[in-house]
Amino acid sequence: MVEARGGRRFAAVFLVAAFLVLLLGRWVKPVNLVALSAAAPFASVASTVATDTGDVISGVTQGNRWRDENQSLQDQVGIVVRQNMLLQAQLHDDKLLRSMLRFDELNKHMEFLTARVIMQDPNSLAPYILINRGTRDGLRRGMTVVSHRGYFVGSIIDLTSNAAKVQLVSSPSSSVGALDLKTRASGLVEGQYSGLPQLHWVVANSTLHKGDFIVTSGQENLFPRTILLGQVTSVQHQNSALFQSAVIQPAADFSNMEMVQVIRNFVPSVPNRLIGSQ
């Protein structure tokens, strides 16, 4: 009986301690950052080893399949090239594609710093990544992170000297000013736990179409302008509503991200304390 009572007391201590960690989260954060800073080099090594091992295993086990796939893809490329010639006749689409594909050329003024993704969030439902660059590389909170193709990934929310936590656009804490590249309808892209991000607060008389490209608007000077966020997959509009919304398929593939680029010379114009309060 005494032992059972002692065990219950012991269990209660852990329950209380766990809730204290949750309630005092803001004060626990510096300790978390120190632990993160210490763990970053180990995470970097583990990530490199895992990626290299995975590549070797995939090469051995799937080599034949890849050769067949490569042949099949080359055949398909021939077809696509012919189709592409037809597409080039459409001036509007051509302009749109060039604005996407020549991202670096169009953004010569931007200074990119390449970073490796060393860790993904341990939970399936948490849209964050950890990169191997930090304050010693000149990074600051709020800086924009794009994929190697220039698609919007997210922004830096926490920093240590050797690592940075990036909040993805699919995070519910993320809110990005956006506009439809074709119709110029503007709104906010907001993420949610599970499911795709949504473009909210678009006034009802603006036009949104399935397939439209959504880019950053640059409003409030939080993010650089005209970075591709994604494509509209469906539009939700009620006749009586003042605003409409749309579901966005992000352009960047978050599931298999190894390298990203941080836009180093664009620093948001709002104070750090506001960015940090997300």
Binding site: F19, L22, D121, P122, S171
Partner: peptide
């Protein structure tokens, strides 16, 4: 897990 996670600490 809280160290590496983007969820609120705790």
């Amino acid at each position: 897990l809280d160290v590496f996670s983007g969820w609120p600490p705790g």
